[in-house]
Amino acid sequence: MSKNIVSVNNLSVSFDYQENFLSKKQKIKAVNNINIKIKKGSFFGLVGESGSGKTTLGRAILGANKISTGNVIFHDDDRDYDLTSINSKEMKEYRKKAQLIFQDPYAALSPRMTVRDIIAEPLEVMKITNSREETDEKVREIASKCRLNLEHLRRYPHAFSGGQRQRISIARALVSNPKFIVADESVAALDVSIQADILNLLKQLQNELNLTYLFISHDLSVVAHVCDIVAVMYLGHIVEMAPSRDLFSNPRHPYTKALLSSIPSIDPENKSKAIELEGEIPSAMNPPSGCVFRTRCPHASQDGKEENIEMGLEEVEPDHWVDRCGVSCG
């Protein structure tokens, strides 16, 4: 059994919101009481619709969002970093070890910098290398690992296609030799043929460099293919979490079931109707009490007893966690 690299304990993140300067300040809970453990060397998937809090959770783990309650602990080989009590010097060290790959390769790269400068920037900012030669050496090394042509290093991002740009973003994230990567919708903006290429590259780099990924995506078929373990989020809560094969062959929560049935099948004869959910994901400003999914749940009871349920994961089978309310209705 390998060790955990990240532990998230009872994590909540809320934002202050004021509609206009006269109205009362409100708290929006974007992420609510999350507990996850990410094992070293795993490909951990986080799926959910827009507004489910997946990006906020990813950013909180990287220390890019303030944590309201709970904590996030990064277990390095020799020591632990607790993000709630970390000082700025330690934070700088942590940044070398945990990096982010963004969604949009067109927005993430500065058009005024050469590819070499883009990839070298983290090294210079974090003062990892001491001389220009050393920096160049590192840049070339990671660029070739990410299958970038070394001649490309002198060019500017506009000369590259989406897939190549995403490889540049990956090279930049990996150049400081991190151990943990958050990939936030990193293939969503790409065409399918290029998406396959980037996914294969991420897998290959994981083996070569011993990486652990938190892979955030709205695309279930992509997640099913690359991830070992998957957590499904809805309105700030994890409603189900399991090893991916288990989750996709035996979904238990009604939301997971609906999500899976909504994927349009590529087989024209398989016109099985999607489990249609009523309406849309409610606003996080005004989430339903009790089970957050109850307003769209096909199994919600008439007497509304779900209003008084307290959400929380239960282990229904080894490693397969389902929200309490979903255990009975699923």
Partner: peptide, 10 residues
């Protein structure tokens, strides 16, 4: 989103 996509397709 996929669940909304399913609604709109139907």
């Amino acid at each position: 989103d996929v669940t909304i996509q399913a609604q709109v397709i139907n």
